[in-house]
Structure formats: C-alpha cells, structure tokens
Design a protein around this nucleic acid. Structure first.
Lengths: 366, 366
DNA sequence: TTGTATGCGTTATCAC
DNA sequence: GTGATAACGCATACAA
C-alpha cells in the first residue's frame, strides 16, 4: 500500500529519507507529523500555520520552522472536504472541441482559466465524447462537490445540462444562451448573434449584392435561429425576398462549409455572396469558391462569424463579425466566481455587441 | 452556514424541497441520507451501491431505488481523501499559452484531456503568469495531493519544476526534454528538434540556397540549442560556413519573427532563405518579406517548425516540420497515468521523428 | 495559550 | 448479511 511508514520526529528524518529512496512513491508530510516534531497538538499546529493570533509567538515560530524543514504542504482534499468548498470551477470540453481546427473552446478555456487563477480558483476540465457523457460529467463533478460551480458552453435547444443544473440549484454560468423561444432565466454571457449576422448581410447588401446565400449551423444549437434571424432581418430591411433554398446547413466544421458552398453555387449560379454562421465554415466556403476557379471577393464575397485568428491570416482576409471569445471566457468565469462567493445578485445575462470586421473577402461594391 | 438543514426520510422530501426553494444553495444528498431513508446503516448502503456481493439482493435493490429517488451522488472529495488518490492529473498553463496566436498549449492540452478522460481521470488546469508562480502552482497541487501526477511542458534549462518534482519523488512526465548538456533522467516525450531543423535546412540547401538565416528561440528554453544544432549540422554536412551573424533570436511570438526577419534581410541582403525555430515566428518572417516588397518562395524561402494549423492555411503555405502536438499530449498523458497506476517501468523517454512538410514557401529550386 | 473532541463523507476492518 | 468503529487530513467549538 501507499505510505507504509510515517515519521514524526526530526531525528527520524534520516530514516524517512532512506525509505523514500527505496520507495518510488511520494511521501506526504501531514499536520500530525509537524505537530509531533514540534511537540504540540495538531490543533495548535493548525492554528499556528493558519495565522491565528491565539497562539504563542515562540510556539508559532517553532512550528513554522519545522513545517518548512519537513516540507509540509496542506492536503487540499482534506481542507476542501472540511470547508465544504472546492475552490475550483468546472468546465466540460465537448467533442467538438477536439477538432483540430477548433479555436473556440481553446480560447474560451484560456479566458476562463486566467480569471480562475487570478481568484485563487483552479479549473477542472473534463473531456467528453458524446452528449450523454457530457451530462453525466456535469452530474459527477457538480453533484459530487468536486467543483463549486460549472460553466456550460455551446448551448443546445432545451439544453439538458441547464435543466439539470437549474433543477438542482447548482451554481453555473452559460457561455451562450437559450434559443429565441426559450426562457433565459439563468446567468449567461453571449454575443448578439442576430445583430452580428445582420451587420454582415447588410454590409453585403450595401455593396449591391442581391443574391446572398447563408450557411447555417445545426438546428439543435441554440444560436442557430438567432443567426438565421439576423440573415432574414437584413434581407427584410432591404426589401429583398427570403429564399429558403438559399440556406444550407453545415456542422460548423470547415469541410462542411466547403461542401455547403459548392452546393449553393452549383444550384444557384446567380449567388454573389455567401454568409456563414461561423468562420470555420466560411473558410471552407472560400476554398469552395477557389476550387471552382472563381475568385473570393471578386466573383463571390464571403462573410463569417467569430473572428478566429485564421480569419485574419487567411488570404484573402475574411470579413467577419468579431466575437471576443477570450473575453467572454473571462466574463463567464468572473460571474461564476461572484455567484459562488455569494457576492453578486445573479445577473440575468450579458449580451455583447459584436463588431463587423471588413477584410478583402468582401471585395469591392458592385 | 451552508446546509443548515438535512432530510433523511422520503416523507421529509417535501420540506426539503421547500427549504431548497428558499435557500439559494445546492443541497447535497449524502450516504447517510440514503441510509436513513432506506432504514439501514451507512456501511450497508455504501456496499450496496458499491456493488459488493455480501449484501442481500432485496436490500440492494431497495437502497438503489432510494438513492436514485433522492438523486444521490457520491462526494468525490471524501472518496478521494479516503482512497488517497485524486484520479486527476495536473497541468499548469504558462503565461506564454495566453498569447492569442498560441496553438501549442491548446493542442497539447486537448490531447492530454482526451486521454485523461478516457482513463477516468480529470484534468486540473492552473493558469500562471510568472515562472515563480508556476513553480508554486506545481508545489501546491502536487504536494497538496490535489492531483496524482503532473505534466510539465516547455522545459527550461535547469528547470526548477523538474528539480522540485524529482526531489520529492512526485509522479510527472515532461513534454519536451532537457538541454543537450543536461541529464534526461525522467520520463518525457519530445520531437527530435535537431533532426527536424536539420531536415528543413538541408531541404533549402538542396534547393541551392547558400545564405540561410536562422531565427532562434530564447536561450533559456531547453530546445533552443537542439534546433540551433540542427541548423549547424545541416550547414556543416554541406560544407557551408556557419555565420553567427546569420542567427537572430526571437521570443517565439509572431511579431518577434517579423522583426527578426526584417533585421536579417536588412543586414544581409544576400540571404535567400530563412528558417525559424517555430511556425509563429516563421509566419511573422513571411510578413516581413512581403512588407519589403519581396515574394515569399520567390525571393526568399521560409521554413518553420511545428506545423500549426495556420501553417497550412497561410498563403503561401508554410514549409515546416510537423510535430504531432496533439499526439504528444496523448502520449504524455498515457505515460503519466501508467506511472500513477504503477503499471509501467518508467520509460526514460520517447523521441518522435518529425516529418518535413514542403509547401509553397519553399519556392522552386534555384 | 493550549489541548480534547467532533465532524466533513466516504470506505475498510472486524466484529456479530 | 449487517452494523459499529476507525481512518483519511484538516478545521473548529469548546473546555481547560
């Protein structure tokens, strides 16, 4: 078994040292060890190290010295169990995040982990491959008191995770929000997808385009309808007809965007602009245009949504709507930590205004 | 305080429900609650749920039913404390990972988290901003028994983290390895940087280039010397002179690569090819070439190292050496979990052969 | 100022 | 089959 031997006195250190050499395993020093070496009780040791003022200064110094000598580090698990608090927030990495092209979740996680660390919180990441596992992962880490709260990303229509967390009154914040017809009665941070897509489409209409295709996202995602609405809003505002056959669906991955664009351009050669629900598919659409011998920004304008790093460095640069993903991660983590600390009157939600970024894939006004 | 009330019987559920409505906080159900509701001891409840065979089948069924009704979820912290094992591996996100361009750590983490989850391990991520904090973060999560082992990435010369972990006999695996003059007496996974850079440089020499600049990385990084050696090896093998003034240092970020390349090309107009220690700087070098009105692959060939996604999608595509970062993450996590489980005779190290990827930034043979 | 006793939620040991 | 009891390592109410 682990930790077959223990040592309690400084004099025994040598023995401990040698047995440590034999034993491959890490040998922890507990409060009891320090107490024994200092010749006082565990309680006093705990209080001395904890900085309480009801302990003799000399005793404290002796204890602190010995603790350092022994290399004492408190057992975080035991502390957390006693304090009934994990000082940790949880995040479940969904399957989609494992696509090599994905920047979204990586950026979000960086923002989250940055804020978490700044507030002395750790971040527990659980990778899951199916959506069922994902719910179970939340149940395990949340109800298992493994973390004090969780962050939910990429919401679905009627999201089972949100339902579960709400039912159990468990602290959580959502990156994203509900679909338009669902209640938003939980804390969230999201970019205004509808306004964002509206801006790109209006931008292309302003350039004189009349036949604009739209590559939509999977219908089960909560933001899909918002973005589709943005597309229809912009058409309606310009008195352009909405044509259902100008809308195709992709799975947010680059390849599906390429297929979708090929499909659109083959079926409707009159299309001169394509707006995509996210950047990855927009980049695929650019590839599609080039593959049929046409030029992006000359024959067909392309627009996206997200402004991932690749959007800036692709050639031509991709016109898109900037969604501050890293910042959203920071905001989400801040809200969650406030809720955990009982500091905030749970805000209902933050909606960020996205920013239109015009690059060369827009081409020139017709 | 938290959890002011508890309920033990099914009949009390209503009360619990209402007090839950009043109380904003999550109310956990413990083994004791289930035991009380089932009318048996905590011990039996634990064994029934744990699947032990020394418990009456009817009792088991009753307990399982009640546990489900009450929504019992085991307290992971308590379990871990009792089992003396966290089923978690730790990873400290260094400052460099927070640069928006960084793909390296994101990919590595994805690989790690994927394998961790597949082995029922969670991943604890701690973000740190300075190198001192980084060491402290390792001490806290490692010695605090918060995790069963840690992964160390981007090694430094004389890395204090490795020193600490080794001294304390703590399970760890390194992504990367020591500098050439240091011992490699710990488990690691790394790509053969030296061979990789040698390949790119040799490739350019084969194309007829004789004046090849090199953008090196910060000297405190352990891999810097390996890559520089690779550069010198290739020159020597072709009987080309090594010129110290053809070598400049960057900080691995894109901007520094751009500056470095501008500097090189201004001071040495005869340079026709530039190899960079990583892709981000190589992409910056491409920008530098373009900014002075020259063409990448025509006037100046550019080569990198890593093969990050951007390398493929940039225009022209970047010739580089593919380092399977995601896969390294997987391997590192696998090794660590094996070590934690005591399954593996600690391997000393895995060195992966990188693969040369020729793209348009190479141009044509002179 | 210090020590004793108890509890956090779980599992393991050993009686019955 | 089942149930007290102790233990994991720490923190705290209370007593001395």
């Amino acid at each position: 078994m682990r930790n077959p031997k223990r040592f309690g006195h400084l004099q025994d250190c040598k023995i401990a040292y040698f047995s440590l050499k034999e034993d491959v395993l890490f040998m922890p020093v507990t409060l009891k060890d320090v107490a024994a070496a200092a010749g006082c009780s565990v309680t006093t040791t705990s209080r001395a190290l904890g900085g309480y003022d009801d302990v003799n200064e000399q005793t404290r110094e002796r204890i602190i010295t010995i603790a350092k000598e022994l290399g004492y580090q408190p057992n975080v698990l035991a502390r957390q169990l006693q304090a009934q608090r994990a000082d940790t927030i949880g995040f479940v990495f969904p399957q989609a995040a494992h696509q090599p092209d994905d920047d979204f979740f990586s950026l979000l996680m960086k923002g989250i982990s940055y804020v978490a660390s700044n507030n002395q919180f750790d971040l527990l990441v659980s990778s899951q491959l199916t959506q069922e596992d994902e719910l179970r992962a939340y149940q395990r880490i949340a109800a298992g008191r493994r973390v004090d709260g969780v962050i939910v990303a990429r919401t679905l229509r009627n999201d089972p995770r949100i339902k579960y967390l709400k039912n159990n009154n468990y602290p959580f914040v959502v990156s994203g929000r509900s679909a338009p017809d669902e209640p938003d009665d939980f804390p969230y941070v999201d970019a205004d997808s509808q306004a964002g897509i509206r801006q790109v489409v209006a931008h292309f209409i302003g350039y004189g385009h009349e036949h604009i295709g739209f590559i939509s996202s999977p219908p089960e995602l909560a933001f899909t309808e918002y973005r589709l609405h943005g597309y229809r809003d912009a058409l309606a505002a310009a008195n352009l007809p909405y044509r259902a056959d100008y809308v195709v669906h992709g799975d947010l991955q680059r390849e599906s965007g390429q297929q979708a664009a090929e499909d659109l351009l083959r079926r409707h050669p009159q299309i001169t602009a394509i707006v995509s629900s996210n950047d990855a598919m927009a980049l695929g659409a650019m590839a599609a245009v080039q593959s049929i011998g046409k030029q992006v920004g000359v024959d067909v304008a392309i627009g996206g949504f997200d402004d991932i790093p690749l959007a800036r460095y692709s050639v031509p640069g991709l016109t898109t709507v900037r969604q501050p993903i890293y910042h959203i991660g920071e905001l989400v983590a801040e809200m969650l930590i406030q809720i955990i600390n009982g500091e905030a009157p749970e805000e209902t939600g933050i909606l960020l205004e996205p920013e239109l970024i015009v690059r060369d894939s827009s081409g020139q006004p017709l």
